[in-house]
């Protein structure tokens, strides 16, 4: 295993979204990909009741040295992957800083308070503008809609974003590692569709 150098050590990444979006799976696949590269990985996450319609966050920390706190400290994120746009803003409030990068899925999931009419959901333009202003660079992708169109299931949005993350070149990610890791748990046709999603994500960021 050869170790590539990290742009920050530790590199602090947060995957955020809403319960049911495949957040936990994305963080574990990503962690395993980087672990395979020889890094020490710490992932902090919550599940259980907090998953029922609530915001779900995974803190992924990549280090050349050791296990770290499963909770990143305030203002210390280097990269935020948001499976839902307003979750990006929520996470930026606590973990953001002027140097942070954001990869953001633009498909909204309305909180129940918005559905009921008690709260307002921002326009996509506003949400994008705020994310852009609070980050060094921001990528916006329509992962959910593309997943529904191409894969027939919105759940592949998380893998599209993983592919997009690889496309940003901010972390040393290998498509072969991705393939190897998902192969252990999936049938061949599932592997194929996941690889397609990964590739689609990479293209979306490059294009």
């Amino acid at each position: 295993m050869e170790k590539t150098k990290l742009s920050f050590d530790p590199f602090n990444l947060i995957i955020t979204g809403v319960g049911g979006q495949g957040n936990v799976m994305a963080s574990r696949v990503l962690g395993n990909m980087l672990s395979h590269k020889g890094f020490h990985i710490t992932i902090g996450e919550t599940f259980g009741a907090s998953q029922r319609g609530g915001s779900v966050m995974s803190h992924v920390r990549v280090s050349s040295a050791s296990s770290l706190s499963p909770q990143i400290a305030r203002g210390q994120a280097h990269m935020i992957i948001a499976l839902e746009p307003i979750e990006a803003i929520r996470v930026l409030m606590t973990y953001g800083n002027p140097e942070v990068n954001v990869l953001c899925n633009i498909r909204p999931i309305h909180p129940v308070g918005v559905i009921s009419g008690e709260l307002d959901y921002p326009s996509l333009e506003d949400a994008k503008a705020y994310v852009t202003e609070l980050s060094k660079s921001a990528w916006f992708v329509n992962a959910t809609d593309r997943a529904m169109e191409q894969m027939g299931n919105p759940i592949f949005g998380n893998i599209i974003l993983l592919g997009a993350l690889a496309g940003t070149n901010l972390l040393p990610l290998d498509r072969d590692d991705f393939k190897m890791i998902i192969q252990g748990d999936m049938t061949q046709d599932k592997v194929k569709i996941n690889l397609d999603a990964y590739d689609m994500g990479m293209e979306m960021v490059k294009g």
Binding site: V18, G19, G20, A49, S50, R52, G53, G54, S55, A73, R74, G75, Q76, I86, E87, I89, R90, L92, M93, G96, N97, P98, P111, V112, G113, V114, L119, D120, Y121, P122, D126, A127, Y130, E133, L134
Partner: peptide, 27 residues
Amino acid sequence: ESMPSSYAEKAETYALKAAPARDLTFC
């Protein structure tokens, strides 16, 4: 200072404006 105060202020304003709370709900 965990983040520059100007950044913190801005982030909080945007979050208040554009990140409505997500209450728990049955799936």
